[in-house]
């Protein structure tokens, strides 16, 4: 297993100048959460997803969500085997380790719901038979935030199922210059830094990162502040506080520490919390929350 910096640098060489989002996406992967990428087309969402999958040698599949996509197109179906005369399950694209759900807001709410259920439960049911999804399993969904015509935006309750929402944004001028001059690494040339089993053991380590009572108090104060009656935005759910702590643990692991500090919480706070506070938010609400709670403890 290579060092963190190698891991981040490996993805970064594919996706020039995006170190912070790359680290956050990696933390999301380590924390065992699902990722929502919200950005304009052509900013590298797909590249990030594929680079993440390749960095641990995970099986990667991509599904473009369209309005006519049916749940069975995702989960797979039972087909009649003429030779034996019985039904055989034909797994759909959900049966991968990293699934890129492109333009998720273009699919019908029914299909979205099927995907999100699979994300939460880790298994799918087809014709009354339950099929386990492979592990690790991560969904990276993208949605185009500007183009709202003919889309079904994810409702708040579904957004809550994504651990983080990230946007990559435009690259800096120098990074884009490097991109144009062909310095970016081709995805196919990227080497895996670890195996899927490494990822599982890292996830276990992640869960063991120490959260002191003082730190948990800090998280509780943040969540309590979001629930104050006069505060704008939706109050944070217990799932949100769990996710915040899990993401902060992964972030502290990426910082090569074995305990979590308020700085780790702050680093992941916007990505974990903003889409739950306000689906259309641009980071103001999460910043206001951070400023409402004293972080020196």
């Amino acid at each position: 297993m290579a060092a963190w910096s190698d891991l981040v640098a490996g993805i970064d060489r594919v996706l020039l100048g995006k170190e912070h989002p790359v680290r956050l996406a990696l933390a999301c992967l380590l924390a065992g959460g699902h990722l929502l990428l919200e950005d304009l087309p052509g900013t590298g969402k797909t590249t990030l997803a594929e680079a993440l999958a390749r960095s641990f040698g995970l099986a990667f599949k991509r599904v473009s969500f369209t309005s006519d996509l049916l749940p069975a197109d995702l989960t797979g179906i039972n087909v009649l085997d003429p030779a034996s005369g019985s039904f055989r399950f034909q797994p759909g694209p959900l049966f991968s380790q990293v699934l890129l759900a492109d333009e998720i807001n273009r699919a019908s709410p029914r299909t979205q719901s099927a995907l999100l259920e699979a994300m939460a439960a880790g298994r799918v049911s087809v014709d009354g038979t339950s099929h386990e999804l492979p592990r690790p399993f991560m969904v990276i969904a993208t949605q185009n935030s500007l183009d709202q015509v003919g889309t079904s935006p994810l409702p708040e309750s579904q957004l809550d199922r994504f651990l983080m929402r990230l946007s990559l944004g435009f690259p800096e001028r120098e990074a884009e210059r490097a991109l144009l001059s062909g310095q970016a690494l081709d995805l196919g040339a990227m080497v895996a830094a670890g195996q899927p089993a490494d990822l599982l053991s890292l996830r276990r380590r992640c869960r063991r990162q120490h959260c002191s009572a003082a730190l948990i108090d800090y998280v509780l104060d943040l969540v309590a502040a979001s629930r104050a009656p006069d505060r704008p935005g939706a109050p944070l759910s217990p799932r949100a506080s769990q996710g915040l702590l899990a993401a902060a643990r992964a972030w502290s692991l990426l910082q090569e520490r074995d305990f979590v500090t308020p700085a780790d919480v702050q680093a992941v706070f916007r990505a974990v919390v903003e889409h739950r506070l306000d689906p259309a938010g641009r980071g103001q609400l999460s910043r206001a929350l951070l400023e409402a709670v004293d972080a020196i403890r």
């Binding site: 500090t261 700085a263 702050q266 409402a292 709670v293 004293d294 972080a295 020196i296």
Partner: peptide, 25 residues
Amino acid sequence: DLADLLRQLHQLGLEPRRGETLEGL
């Protein structure tokens, strides 16, 4: 100990900003 450090920083004219961590300060 923490109060001692904050006192030192206060004498330097530095107050913690809202939501700022000790590292940031």
